[in-house]
Nucleic acid binder design. Structure first.
Lengths: 190, 190
DNA sequence: GCCTTTCTTGAGCGATCACTCAAGTATATA
DNA sequence: TATATACTTGAGTGATCGCTCAAGAAAGGC
């Protein structure tokens, strides 16, 4: 049999995710990708098919990694504590490609053009919201949150607050950690 | 003396604002603008200088109009009531070019490229935040909000929540009015 | 009427966009 | 070692990007 590709596909997708996350869809050119991935156009298209196809892979990795990190946090510290710590974690990482959520950036950029990637981003956001709802449910079962609240409603509001926080964190001169703390404190009052 | 331009400059800026607001900076081409403004390239560049210059004018109009509408609401119903009604108003208008805030869309799209328009958007957001803080202050003077709160802190959180709401409203299948109501209810508990 | 001043027109500029493909190169099997 | 089977290369595709500019058209003042 023949030659093997001399790259680590997973590593390439991660690097593409970081570039797309930071610069957005139209802000990332094939030239940018070729530079970061160290690939010529021919190899790129043989490996991924199109810029859009790679973007979708990048979003999937973004969601899978984030989801796993939240789940791990919940396993370690419990569901409520995970939900309370998550906003600060989302915003504190100095090395992350951007503070704002990649899914919301994609949605805002491409929704007006009815681009399929905007629809995909929305679906991924729905999945994240469902994970939040699960954690709220678990926190209720553990007696940490009053059972009078609807977990879906809590999750919807929580995600909205999180998206706002992460837009704010993208700004210069905004104390995002302070907002993150307020969101966490709000959960204590449920 | 000579010929007058046969267009209403203010009207052109409004149409450009709607287009930019909906499609974003890189999502709006000169061709799009020429079509909507009914201008050939020569006239366009004679009138506005560049795409970026028109975008800045569009943002200024966006902020001026929004700011005036909020101020009018406050004059009519009082500062606290204005702050409580504002989220629902921002999200209910079916004819608006987009649900998300034009400033946050611009910031997210252009911040990574250090584009001057991202910096401008941030400054406009700061001005809006200051207006919110003023209204919170006035509500405290009127005795509608406990004086133990810092108006700047309230405004920062309020704006973050508003940005999150408006990103959520851009999504399909999200009940943004419900989130708006929760934000308003939160203000009642201050 | 004419002249001056401005606005309008639209072909077309160089640069960049996402993407293609034929030719060359490396590797596993026979 | 020979062959088959990928992977890699990079010049080049047509389309579109923001923008320019010379020529023509319109509306004052005289």
């Amino acid at each position: 049999m023949p030659r093997k590709p001399n790259f680590d596909r997973n590593d390439l997708i991660e690097r593409a995710r970081d570039l797309f996350w930071q610069r957005g869809w139209s802000g990332t050119s094939l030239k940018d990708l070729e530079a970061v991935l160290q690939m010529k156009p021919g190899s790129f298209y043989a490996a991924f098919g199109s810029k859009d196809a790679l973007f979708e892979l990048a979003m999937q990795k973004y969601v899978a990694d984030g989801s796993a990190r939240l789940q791990e946090l919940a396993s370690k510290d419990g569901p409520l504590e995970a939900l309370k710590r998550w906003p600060a974690l989302a915003v504190e990482n100095e090395t992350s490609p951007a503070k704002a959520c990649m899914l919301s950036k994609t949605l805002l950029e491409l929704h007006a053009h009815n681009h399929p990637l905007a629809e995909q981003a929305n679906l991924h956001l729905l999945k994240m919201e469902e994970q939040f709802a699960d954690l709220f449910r678990q926190a209720q079962m553990a007696g940490d949150i009053d059972k009078s609240h609807d977990p879906q409603v809590l999750a919807r509001r929580y995600q909205s607050d999180l998206l706002g926080l992460r837009v704010s964190a993208e700004r210069d001169g905004i104390n995002a950690q302070a907002i993150a703390k307020e969101i966490a404190d709000g959960l204590s009052r449920l």
